[in-house]
């Protein structure tokens, strides 16, 4: 193997992206857990730890810039390096959405208007999509990336059904409008998290094959 320093920089970048993926996944997971259990402490933890994830993004951005400036990555390396930047942006957005969910939890007054079933189900799928997308990234698994992106349809189905249900509940009972609209936003945030997971899957396909695909 030649170009040892180059390879070290590429390896470090990959480790940083994988690490950021784990932190974002934890943020998404905890934000929904806090919402379901109305655990204000956990919600606050998600909000506080966002800074660490933002730092990860900056570190990745710096690693990408250095690789481009110093090493002239081409071909598969170039696809990997530019995609790392995109993936970091997706992960950062996902963490911000998790923070948004945590902030909603902090602002919810009293108990939930109904037992939360669909939202945690949606969150489980989104959480799992992110985990699988990052496994696909780590190992260049094109098939896993494609299969993972397909699960976004399940999220969308739950999103539309639950949205409809919440609107009907608000029509029936004006007193729940505040909390129900909070939940509408949570739905929207989870749906967006699924979309970002799809983006990561698209990046994996591009890295591994050079093909730009629309999996969303």
């Amino acid at each position: 193997m030649t170009r040892t320093r180059y390879q070290e920089m590429l390896d470090r970048l990959k480790r940083d992206v994988i690490q950021m993926g784990k932190l974002s996944q934890t943020a998404v997971h905890n934000s929904v857990k806090a919402l379901k259990e109305l655990d204000m402490e956990l919600a606050q933890k998600v909000i506080d730890e966002d800074e660490v994830i933002d730092d990860c993004e900056l570190k990745i951005e710096k690693g990408v810039s250095q690789l481009i400036a110093l090493q002239n990555p081409t071909a598969g390396d170039m696809r990997f390096v530019t995609s790392c930047l995109k993936i970091a942006i997706d992960l950062e957005r996902m963490s911000d959405l998790a923070v948004n969910i945590a902030e909603i939890t902090v602002n919810i007054e009293g108990d939930h208007i109904k037992p939360l079933v669909d939202i945690p189900k949606m969150a489980d799928i989104a959480d799992n999509m992110l985990e699988q997308a990052m496994i696909a990234f780590e190992n260049n698994y094109i098939d896993l990336a494609k299969a993972t992106a397909e699960r976004d349809d399940e999220i969308d189905r739950i999103y539309y059904a639950t949205e409809k249900e919440l609107i009907e509940m608000m029509i029936d009972d004006k007193d729940i409008i505040t909390n129900a609209s909070h939940l509408l936003f949570v739905l929207r945030h989870l749906e967006r998290i699924g979309d970002h997971a799809c983006n990561i899957c698209e990046s994996v396909v591009y890295i591994a094959s050079g093909k730009r695909t629309d999996l969303n």
């Binding site: 193997m1 030649t2 170009r3 180059y6 990555p73 081409t74 071909a75 598969g76 390396d77």
Partner: peptide
């Protein structure tokens, strides 16, 4: 080709 242009020859 990939090996050559990414400098990983040899």
């Amino acid at each position: 080709t990939e090996d050559y242009i990414t400098g990983r020859f040899g």
